[in-house]
Design a protein around this nucleic acid. Structure first.
Lengths: 354, 354
DNA sequence: CTGAAAGCGCTTACAG
DNA sequence: CTGAAAGCGCTTACAG
């Protein structure tokens, strides 16, 4: 490794490689006290123009940059928040992240984030690592169902807002979409177009949104006086293989469905692929919007969530908490929007309904 | 605000609301020295089972969790890296982020990230804020073209790897896609299918990838001995309005194109929408793959980058640097892949070519 | 207007 | 096996 102790300026008080100048170095070079440097760096009043000038020169010459981790230690607050979600790369969560980031930025905070990969142990590990860094607050899309492990943290002042799904066994803020109502309306839409045998393909049953949407499906079917055959409902991992197999099963069984309601963006994408190769048309309404959904044939009818608004709402609530709002836990619910594009308006293909 | 000084256990040494127990508190409660607590917390050897047990009990009783910001201050390294890119929510960058996160996790590091929104000032501000937090390293998709502001940081030991685009005016690592070659091959593909009048719709010319891809377009046209009319080339913001207007202009001008090469995923999505309403078929090859591109009619032929691999490669290089690799700046180039799906194989519609 | 001392919560380097 | 002292780089609380 090269020795950078001596720069082109000779053996000047330039810190060795890997070290950085501190306020103490700046103070020494400018011939002032440490506190005066601190005042200049933080724009505090009470420094003459002349002194300030000397300090600024020393700062530039040494390439000084305040070490915020030291500052954090002393001030208590880190001006950073954590975001834990299922998968940063998922097209639903990516805009949510971006929205949280924007709100954090507006509040002068930095964002630490990570993916739980739908693994409760990994969620916990990540959340606790963020707590150890003393983030001021946390926005969490929970993977697990038990968040009592957060209690010592919240008791110590950590603010937490759950988003997309509520926290488990803990009284905490949550910002959710109207999963029940959205699914109910989407299924009712299929019913209104003449379908009586409608399949539901959802995510794993331990995920709150999956069961809420299933509840919406059942409510719509019940409201229409339609029976639900057990073979029409399938919850489980959203891996394409499983979804493909289940879709094919529902389309070809003894009591084949004429329409599908898919429980999230990943499921919809796979189902669309299966339907594209299927001999007869099958109606489809999907939860979550997809990019280019409007350009498919038929265009895909969806129950859209506003991922960005979910993130923004959660982050804003978090910062209200950090600003001292100590009211009881709040649950906010955002509306979904049915966007009819074609696939949800196809009539039953086999004439057995209506 | 409720007074939690006294818990259900009475006036026990439970820290006041907002405060947290420290190793000192644990040591006092367990009746041992501070260093012994540190040993237990960090799994260092040299503590009897009996002592360790007492310490662990105190930790649990107090809800102690090590404060990593204090640890960081003392150890020098923060075990965190920063990622600055254009837009966390962009379907191209989201998987890149996720890949960086995975590598960070493998190395026990946390990820701080933020979006520059293609604004050089914002990029700089974000990068310097991350430096102030003393991230150990930085992965940056640069928005600006001058990164000399990073010199004091790198001199002090900060590792930086640029990804997707090279840094400007600084000798630094970079991991890029073969933008030139990918675009050249994509355009050559259109030429091979009989097109002579091919439009190029790209991002802003100050973005490295935009000019590299344009260079590839020109190379392919030149290699085929085809002239390039100035009206066939358009670089600028990827806002849908501009792209729509430019696409329509190229399709309807005095010398209309029979094929389009689009410079990135956002441009492609907008162009596909315009072409869907256009009276005659127009061939299209887009840089970057799109979700559901295979299901459109025609399916969209693309030059795909591996965003995830870009992120992984950059992050791995970063950690090699952090592990002491002090070799000269490295530039890695990843291949692109032409995926023929239909839109790029359409023949010229007006019969003026070939 | 300016600065010396103490302290944030840990780890390092020693000493028993 | 155990612990007291010093120090990481700042800010706080005072004192001049």
């Amino acid at each position: 490794m090269p020795d950078r102790t001596r720069g082109p300026n000779g053996p000047f008080p330039r810190p060795r490689y890997g070290a950085r100048p501190t306020m103490k170095d700046v103070a020494a070079r400018a011939g002032v006290g440490l506190k005066t440097v601190s005042r200049v760096v933080n724009g505090e009043p009470g420094v003459t123009a002349e002194t300030e000038h000397r300090v600024r020169e020393a700062i530039t010459a040494l390439g000084f940059r305040r070490n915020d981790s030291a500052r954090v230690l002393r001030k208590g607050r880190t001006a950073s928040i954590g975001l834990v979600l299922e998968d940063l790369a998922d097209p639903f969560y990516a805009p949510l992240s971006r929205a949280v980031e924007e709100v954090a930025r507006d509040h002068g905070a930095l964002l630490l984030n990570g993916s739980s990969a739908e693994d409760p142990a990994r969620e916990r590990e990540l959340v606790l690592a963020l707590c150890a860094r003393r983030v001021d607050g946390l926005v969490v899309v929970p993977a697990g169902g038990d968040h009592r492990y957060l209690e010592p943290e919240t008791a110590a002042g950590l603010a937490t807002v759950f988003v997309d799904r509520p926290g488990g066994l803990i009284a905490a803020d949550a910002v959710l979409s109207d999963n029940f109502g959205g699914a109910r309306d989407g299924v009712a839409h299929l019913v209104a177009h003449g379908h009586r045998r409608i399949g539901f393909l959802g995510d794993q049953p331990r995920i709150h949104t999956a069961t809420e949407r299933l509840r919406g499906y059942r409510a719509a079917m019940a409201a229409a006086g339609l029976p639900v055959d057990a073979s029409w409902v399938s919850l489980g991992p959203t891996a394409p293989d499983r979804v493909r197999a289940e879709t094919e099963r529902m389309l070809t069984g003894p009591s084949p469905v004429t329409a599908l309601f898919t429980g999230n963006n990943r499921v919809t994408a796979t189902a669309v692929r299966v339907l594209a190769r299927h001999p007869r048309p099958v109606a489809l309404v999907g939860f979550d919007d997809l990019e280019l959904a409007d350009l498919l044939t038929p265009a895909v009818t969806v129950v859209a969530q506003d991922a960005s608004r979910l993130g923004r709402t959660a982050a804003e609530l978090l910062f209200r908490r950090l600003d001292g709002d100590a009211g009881p836990p709040r649950h906010e619910e955002l509306p979904t929007r049915l966007i009819a594009r074609g696939s949800g308006e196809l009539p039953p293909a086999d004439g057995t309904s209506g």
